[in-house]
């Protein structure tokens, strides 16, 4: 079905929260998924697969051990959301010519939206590369090189982020995206966990409107 980007963002934020991510990362996961969807990528599919994989796992297990050197997670697999957010936070490192290298990253395409934020901060394009795929963004447009299998891959052994990068072609975002029904249902299951069960007492007390208001 066709969704507005706002609907996708709102659903992904709730779903991420339902999977146990802290609010700040939920906001970034949602904005990033929206960003990918606006370029025609199945961001929601990747996100929901990641949420299922890491459901309620402690964020620290999936985070880089340190920001120096090559990034590795203590438990082996890096979350693309946590590593991506850290890369955006450290964007300034890439400005100095350093390459940020991440090992064993799940759903590496989910790192790319964070490169868009980093590119806007640095004022120059940032490249994210893994296993024959190279994505370059200046924050507003995206240049894609690689086959779709590699782009949508569920895991990459090594992901490298660098700046400045050259944009050979540019695709612009669109304001609409198609999300499969099955994916929406899977996201919805996570989102559902964020809603407090309704009771008549909370309905009256919480909304504060016991009156029908008809006059």
């Amino acid at each position: 079905m066709s969704y507005s980007l706002n609907e996708i963002e709102a659903m992904c934020k709730r779903a991420s929260r339902g999977a146990g991510l802290p609010w700040g990362l939920c906001e970034e996961a949602a904005k990033g998924t929206r960003w990918l969807a606006s370029f025609g990528f199945s961001g929601p599919d990747l996100l929901v697969s990641l949420l299922e994989l890491n459901d309620r796992l402690p964020a620290v297990d999936l985070s880089p051990v340190a920001l120096q050197g090559i990034w590795r997670a203590p438990a082996g697999r890096l979350s693309p959301l946590i590593a991506g957010a850290a890369m955006s936070d450290c964007a300034i490192k890439m400005e100095l010519g350093n390459i940020i290298t991440m090992l064993e990253v799940d759903y590496p395409l989910l790192v790319v939206p964070f490169a868009s934020g980093a590119a806007l901060r640095l004022g120059q394009p940032v490249a994210v590369e893994w296993e024959g795929t190279r994505m370059v963004t200046n924050g507003k447009e995206l240049c894609v090189q690689g086959n779709s299998e590699a782009i949508l891959s569920s895991h990459a052994k090594r992901v490298e982020c660098s700046a400045p990068a050259q944009m050979l072609s540019q695709s612009k975002p669109i304001h609409r995206a198609v999300v499969g029904d099955a994916c929406w249902v899977r996201l919805g299951a996570f989102a559902q966990r964020t809603f407090a069960p309704a009771t008549e007492a909370s309905r009256l007390r919480g909304a504060g409107a016991g009156l029908t208001g008809s006059d």
């Binding site: 802290p22 609010w23 700040g24 990362l25 906001e27 970034e28 964020a59 620290v60 985070s63 880089p64 340190a66 920001l67 946590i82 957010a85 850290a86 936070d89 450290c90």
Partner: peptide, 12 residues
């Protein structure tokens, strides 16, 4: 960046 790596709960 260093603080949030340890404390993602404060990102928001």
């Amino acid at each position: 960046a260093q603080f949030l790596l340890r404390h993602p709960e404060y990102r928001h």
